[in-house]
């Protein structure tokens, strides 16, 4: 089984461990992920605020490359990339004249035939149905599943999970042996793009999230977005100083947890790369 993979910038840099764990879990389950050749930036966070056509042309090029390279389904682990690619597919499908401008103007041969899967959709479709008997080390911890903003919104376009109270990651964690907690900050803003420009805002926003998770007894926060992970993990100092207390629960990718449950070693899953030590 071979699927296309669009890593995007984060998965090649600050969240290498996400890529490592995605590949490790896929490999363990006999799925080959083939990176789209010559991929480019998805335009996330900046492009759609500055230039609508550019924000659609960038993902359109990525998708047209995937089509050309014969891919039917492309896995997009980063929630921001997933959002940009899916929104582009949608916009170009419902606005034929826009599609014309974007494709003609940039010399793209784009059909919109590629199906885009976020990490949870990929796991649900190809991994969890075959988990029977393979969970060798159930992740027996209380976890807070944090979906962030882009994985489930805008619902009208993504049509994935419930936008205000999503459940898919919780179900996945149950299958990995974890106990997801019921909490209120599943889709609250982590501060996302303010990480560099206004770190204090991240301290406040991510702080509220971590505090609620910790107060409700979570031993780990589970994420499926490199931006969420870096804010909750890398910005822990700012968070703790905002909260005035030390919160040391680690922030794991959904694929790292699944990898641990499948018995993959911690180093392969990149657990040593976290800022907040993963001691569970």
């Amino acid at each position: 089984m071979t699927l296309g993979l669009y890593p995007g910038c984060s998965l090649k840099g600050s969240s290498r461990e996400y890529t490592e764990s995605v590949l490790a879990v896929a490999q363990a389950c006999g799925i080959e992920l083939v990176e789209i050749e010559d991929w480019n930036c998805c335009g996330a966070t900046a492009a759609h605020n500055l230039n609508k056509e550019l924000s659609l042309a960038l993902p359109a090029r990525i998708l047209s490359l995937a089509e050309k390279q014969g891919m039917k389904e492309v896995v997009v682990p980063c929630a921001a990339c997933y959002s940009r690619l899916t929104v582009t597919n949608h916009e170009l499908a419902v606005h034929p004249e826009l599609k014309q401008t974007i494709t003609k103007g940039n010399g793209l041969d784009y059909k919109g035939s590629v199906e885009i899967l976020n990490i949870i959709q990929m796991l649900d479709k190809y991994i969890t149905p075959n988990l029977e008997g393979r969970i060798v080390k159930p992740f027996e911890h209380k976890v807070a599943c944090y979906y962030g903003c882009l994985l489930v919104r805008p619902h009208e376009i993504l049509k994935f999970d419930r936008e205000e109270d999503p459940q898919s990651m919780d179900e996945l964690m149950l299958k990995a042996g974890a106990t997801p907690i019921d909490w209120a900050f599943k889709t609250e803003c982590c501060g996302a793009g303010l990480s560099v420009s206004r770190t204090s805002s991240v301290g406040r926003l991510s702080g509220e999230i971590l505090k609620d998770a910790a107060d409700r007894g979570a031993e780990a926060v589970i994420v499926a977005c490199p931006m969420c992970q870096s804010n909750l993990d890398m910005r822990r100092e700012a968070i703790n100083s905002y909260l005035g207390e030390k919160i040391d629960i680690p922030v794991l990718y959904v694929t790292q947890v699944l990898g641990l449950a499948l018995g993959i070693d911690r180093k392969t899953l990149g657990l040593q790369r976290h800022f907040v030590a993963v001691n569970i």
Binding site: E164, W183, F185, E188, D212, D215
Partner: peptide, 11 residues
């Protein structure tokens, strides 16, 4: 924007 329960209160 949201209501959630915490320590027996509805926030």
């Amino acid at each position: 924007s949201r209501i959630y329960e915490k320590n027996g209160k509805l926030i």
